[in-house]
Design a protein around this nucleic acid. Structure first.
Lengths: 229, 229
DNA sequence: TTTAAAATATGATATTTATCAGTTTCCGTT
DNA sequence: AACGGAAACTGATAAATATCATATTTTAAA
């Protein structure tokens, strides 16, 4: 697997594309590649981060534990996304935990390299800003969805989101397989409630499932459900 | 009222403090002061913004309308805060509506001035980035709160938030007076539910009210409620 | 000041969602 | 293949919240 940032394709998808050749060289020289096993944390809420993580492979959930012991998943980060930049920029400890949903390969980039470039290269800073603006919009939309839509609508929406953002495998199942508990934590509901609604969707022919794997059968009806029919 | 940005105190609170003298002059020359009456919009969801708004006075709610006709308030912006930067940076139409909660005075700064400075002054860009990082953290926290806390807890939290961020008047009432409907839209619940819980808080001596005005009587108990007792 | 409209308030009820308890299925390990 | 534990599932019930109806109070306008 290619290990020089300069020739890394993933870079095209994130703010690192705004870096100069020299800056990329610095990143490449200072980065380390890490493998993270399914279920293991990249970092946890409250940790002080010494750098950011660029996802090469796999998916990480960004979540926060609440007083009652339930996790709320705020975002799913996949190939090409950079995790931990918010904490590094704000110079605060991590607000969220990042846990591998499946086996991952990530590049760890020390914060000095990032901060250095932020101070020198306005294009890079602007690019990071654009990404953060996008994340903020998404977060605002999640707020509106959670508070205004029913659990059923949110689960339907989650399936459509998974299809659009992670695609399907050869057999037509969602490429990203989440446990029922993870689904309930994305949607912000009790696990049993999520399971019940998933069963209902199966009975109604909106989705089909084989073990954990879920496939979308009737995208239009799911979409209608989201919009409130 | 002072109208040159160079000597505007409000600037200290937002990212404009990272501007150079020349840049501030440009802002000052291109800006226009607007008065917005209570209930009137600065802009609405879907509008293309030609600039950003810097709040001199008053408070604006940033909200989004959902399919069922209810607004969800995502943020309250007050003196010193800049509104609309996300849309300008992403070059997208506004994701949220900004409506004056009380009479406001704002400075409108054309986007060209902002974009210009973003491209030239890395310190300014970094400062904007830091503010956006802060907003993103707050948005993530709202997501967790809405999905994990009960309506009662969220209302208690909202009152504490109002006290901490907007203060109290001479008589000990919250300085920012919101209608019951606005409170329910901050918290993400039905207006009647919010009213019911506010009545309960009054009966229990946690707050007192005179018309719309609400005062906090027992901050400790409210805080305990938020934490789940 | 009067008056109408809007906001607040409260009760009754329906709906949604969570919780608890228990069963079944799946899956990795020995 | 057998075992054991975790995840998935289902039912019964409780709790939280929304909705509808209506009364009361406040506010703003004539």
């Amino acid at each position: 697997m290619e290990s020089r940032c300069e020739s890394c394709i993933i870079r095209q998808f994130n703010s690192l594309r705004a870096m100069s050749k020299e800056e990329l060289k610095e990143v490449s020289d200072s980065k380390t590649i890490k493998k993270v096993k399914k279920g293991d944390p990249l970092f946890e809420e409250g940790d002080k981060l010494n750098g950011v993580y660029c996802v090469r492979n796999g998916v990480s959930k960004l979540s926060k534990l609440s007083a009652n012991g339930k996790d709320q998943i705020v975002k799913l980060a996949t190939k090409g996304e950079v995790i931990g930049q918010r904490s590094v920029i704000s110079e605060e400890s991590a607000n969220l935990s990042a846990i591998a949903v499946n086996d991952m390969e990530v590049c760890f980039i020390p914060k000095e390299t990032i901060i250095n470039t932020l101070q020198k290269n306005p294009n890079f800073t602007l690019e990071v800003l654009r990404h953060m603006a996008h994340d903020l919009k998404e977060a605002d939309d999640v707020i509106v969805n959670i508070s205004q839509k029913t659990v059923k609508q949110r689960i339907a929406e989650a399936f459509l989101y998974l299809k659009n953002n992670f695609g399907e495998d050869e057999e037509g199942f969602l490429a990203l397989t989440l446990s029922r508990e993870d689904i309930s934590n994305v949607v912000g509901t009790a696990t049993e409630s999520a399971i019940r609604i998933i069963s209902e969707f199966k009975k109604k022919g909106l989705i089909h499932a084989s073990g954990k794997k879920i496939g979308i059968k009737d995208e239009r009806k799911l979409q209608e459900l989201v919009e409130g029919f």
